[in-house]
């Protein structure tokens, strides 16, 4: 990928991230009979948070300050390296799927450390849960992408898009892997049925419990990181299903603008689907998570096994 394609993708995805969270909230509100706020509200919220004074707990250490920066960096890393708008493949093979899942794990690790640093029971609870989820989702993620790697013959995610779209019908096993990827996405992004993104009830929260002590710019960074992560996952799955309007290394104005418009449409559709899902299922009890995680893992494994059986 040329550097400019790299930059355009990074900037556009970074700008779209708050919009996707806003969309998800709007659709969810509409489905639940509320009128909901504008999808552009998160932009205002981030701007407000950035201007606010930070209140820092006096029990915290350097880890508390490092956390938001590392967490947002891992999301930005994913947003720039993956084939979200451009299918040209990142320089140095950085869109490798194992790198992707390890970078996500790095972000989760720091989120966990930031949650434990103030020494409150809330933070500890959220951290313990998030660490459990992250360490057990990572195997499922790698297995899921391994199926795509086996079928497409590429270990770079940009190469895996070759078997996306209409080609998925030639490899039906990948549809199973796609389901597993969806389940991983829900767990990685702290959505239903794993976590409730809208609650502050201590029994249910995972992600919110960890960032409870953050305020001001740090909180803005952490919330931005999570909406960026959601955007990255949504665009990634959308591109596997519909890999069509992506610009290549040779940039041209029409292709770039069409791709950006398509990306917005993809995001809106993905958020609508997410809102429908979140409005129709309940959250699972945390101590039943091993069922969810093992189901995810075994679906991923089934996808990998079926993709190894030659179709003739």
């Amino acid at each position: 990928m040329s550097l400019s394609a790299f930059l355009i993708q990074g900037i556009v995805v970074l700008l779209l991230a708050p919009f996707s969270t806003g969309c998800a909230r709007l659709f969810k509100a509409r489905l639940q009979g509320r009128s909901g706020a504008s999808p552009f509200l998160p932009y205002v919220r981030f701007a407000t948070l950035l201007r606010k004074e930070m209140v820092i707990a006096n029990t915290t250490s350097w880890v508390f300050h490092v956390t938001p920066i590392v967490v947002v960096s891992t999301s930005v890393f994913a947003a720039t390296s993956l084939p979200l708008l451009s299918d040209a493949g990142a320089p140095g093979g950085l869109d490798n799927f194992i790198v992707f899942s390890a970078i996500l794990a790095l972000g989760s690790v720091f989120l966990v450390l930031g949650g434990l640093d103030p020494g409150t029971a809330f933070g500890g609870m959220g951290s313990s849960r998030e660490m459990t989820l992250a360490s057990l989702v990572e195997p499922a993620m790698i297995t899921t992408f391994a199926a795509f790697a086996v079928v497409s013959g590429h270990s770079d995610i940009s190469g895996m898009l070759n078997v996306g779209g209409a080609a998925l019908l030639q490899y039906p096993s990948l549809i199973i892997s796609l389901v597993a990827l969806g389940l991983c996405t829900l767990a990685e992004n702290a959505r239903y049925p794993v976590d409730n993104p809208a609650t502050h009830l201590e029994l249910t929260m995972v992600h919110e419990a960890m960032i409870l002590e953050y305020s001001g710019a740090s909180l803005a960074l952490l919330e931005y990181a999570s909406s960026l992560r959601l955007t990255v996952f949504s665009l990634l799955i959308a591109n596997i299903v519909v890999p069509l309007p992506l610009f290549s290394a040779a940039l041209s104005l029409p292709s770039v603008s069409v791709t950006i418009a398509a990306a917005i449409v993809k995001l809106v559709v993905a958020m609508l689907l997410l809102a429908i899902l979140e409005s129709s299922i309940p959250k699972m009890r945390f101590y039943r998570m091993q069922e969810y995680l093992s189901v995810t893992y075994f679906i991923a494994l089934a996808g990998l096994v079926f993709s190894l059986i030659p179709l003739s």
Binding site: L50, E53, M54, I56, A57, V76, L221
Partner: peptide
């Protein structure tokens, strides 16, 4: 990415900080 994040936060964020007890 790390350096850019630090720079952007330094530029855009409010530098004011107040120390307080945890939410209890």
């Amino acid at each position: 990415v790390l350096v850019l994040t630090v720079m952007v936060t330094r530029l855009c964020g409010n530098r004011l900080r107040r120390s307080s007890h945890v939410w209890d």
